[in-house]
Simulated assay, not measured.
Amino acid sequence: MKRFQLLIIFLTIISCSEKQRHPYTYYYWKTNLAFNETEKKALNQSTAPYLYTRFFDVDKLNGKFEPVAVITQDKSFQTDKKIVPAVFITNRTFLNIKKEEIKFLAQSIHQLIKKKIADYTLKIDNEIQIDCDWTAGTKDDYFLFLKELKKISGKQITCTLRLHQVKDKNLMGIPPVEKVYLMCYSTSSPLENSDINSILDVNILKNYLFKLEEYPLKKIEVALPIYSWGIVTNHLGKHKLINALSKKNLTNPNFNKISESEIEVAKDGFYFGSFLNKGFKIKVEEISDEQIEEVIEFLDKKLNAYIIIYYQLDSKFVYGRNFQKI
């Protein structure tokens, strides 16, 4: 009997220590749909049957709704994954919007999605994802838009969920959808003077999601960052971003090394497509596998089974990573 009890305890320990494996895939957020060999390989190795693909953005310009950066397609964009159309809508689109305009906006977005599907004969899943950083002031109109889009399209409408919308759920409201995508990045602004990683600071994320298990919607998928950038600071302390920089890009005889992730420009010149003066500083922010693992371990205590969507599918970000081991 004693041996049997010890065996049960041992098996329980082993079971609890086993890491939960999550199906994973990617966001594709480029205007031109095109794959190189690295991206094809990464997508083929992913274990979820979807690719979340940005179709266009929507903004309000001079009082009118406008599609921005609508996708084009290259012949290299071929995949067996089902495409989930994603549309980013600026929050200001819903400021002072009229009820009749909400229906017009939903109809227009649905029609443009249908056109792009037909133009490129894309294999589509029965879902449309809307990405909007709504606020307390726009939530009612945004939520009405989501309902209208569902009615017009007949599709499953899902939406993204930002960290502050979880923490302040009573103020921000709960979107009228069955499933949301929790965006576990952008934990602070990269344009503020700070020593923390603005893409993902795990302690800040844990603070925002401390009561995630109490969120009323129980179907939550998770978006995790794999992107990187460089934050350039000029002599006046003003910042700008250079996308897709990594620490390996900081090796240059015209740079003075400050730390593993920060340099000071020692000679005026063009670097990474921008003219930078002597004395400008560049700080690289990127995401390690260890940070991703820590976030997953935290979320596993808060959520049931979920899919991971990495942002984003780009050879600069997927090369050398093995997500099946994370």
Rank of each mutant, 00 (worst) to 15 (best):
T31R: 15
G320I: 10
F298G: 03
H235D: 12
K301L: 12
N249I: 00
D201P: 08
R3D: 02
Y28W: 14
I196P: 02
N249Y: 04
S108D: 12
S261M: 08
K238F: 04
K169C: 01
T121V: 08
Y24I: 03
A34L: 09
Y311A: 05
G269Q: 02
P85S: 06
A244L: 03
D201Y: 04
T160P: 06
G230E: 00
I263D: 02
L161I: 08
N277F: 03
Y215K: 11
V180L: 07
S288Q: 04
F272S: 11
K60N: 11
Q5Y: 13
L217V: 13
K206R: 09
Y185T: 06
F88E: 04
I14Y: 14
A34S: 15
L205C: 11
F145G: 05
N277W: 08
Y120S: 05
E39G: 05
D268C: 10
G63A: 04
I282P: 03
F55H: 06
L303M: 02
V84N: 06
N243S: 10
S189H: 08
N254W: 09
K150N: 14
D201S: 13
L163W: 00
Y208Q: 10
R162F: 08
N32Y: 04
V177L: 13
F280W: 15
L241Q: 10
T79R: 10
N36C: 11
I308V: 15
C132N: 11
E192G: 02
G63S: 14
T121A: 11
L236Q: 05
N62T: 07
E213H: 10
L209T: 02
T12R: 08
L161K: 07
K248P: 06
P253G: 09
H22M: 00
V295P: 04
F317H: 11
S189N: 14
Q5F: 13
T233I: 03
F275I: 02
A34E: 12
K257I: 15
L217Q: 13
C159H: 02
I263Q: 02
P175G: 08
L105P: 02
N193E: 00
L122C: 10
Y319S: 13
K151R: 08
E101I: 04
S15W: 12
E178R: 11
I292Y: 01
S288F: 08
T160H: 01
K167C: 12
Y185V: 05
H235M: 03
C184D: 11
T135A: 12
M172V: 09
S76W: 14
P176R: 06
V58N: 08
A106H: 10
S261E: 15
F143K: 09
T233M: 05
Y319H: 13
P85K: 06
V265K: 12
N170Q: 15
K150L: 01
T47I: 06
K316R: 15
S76G: 14
F280H: 15
K30V: 00
N44W: 01
P49N: 12
Q165P: 07
F56A: 10
E294C: 05
K147N: 13
F317I: 03
W229T: 05
I71Q: 12
I226G: 07
R3N: 13
G154R: 02
L303H: 09
I130M: 09
I296V: 14
E294S: 14
T90N: 08
I128H: 01
V232T: 07
T93L: 12
D201F: 09
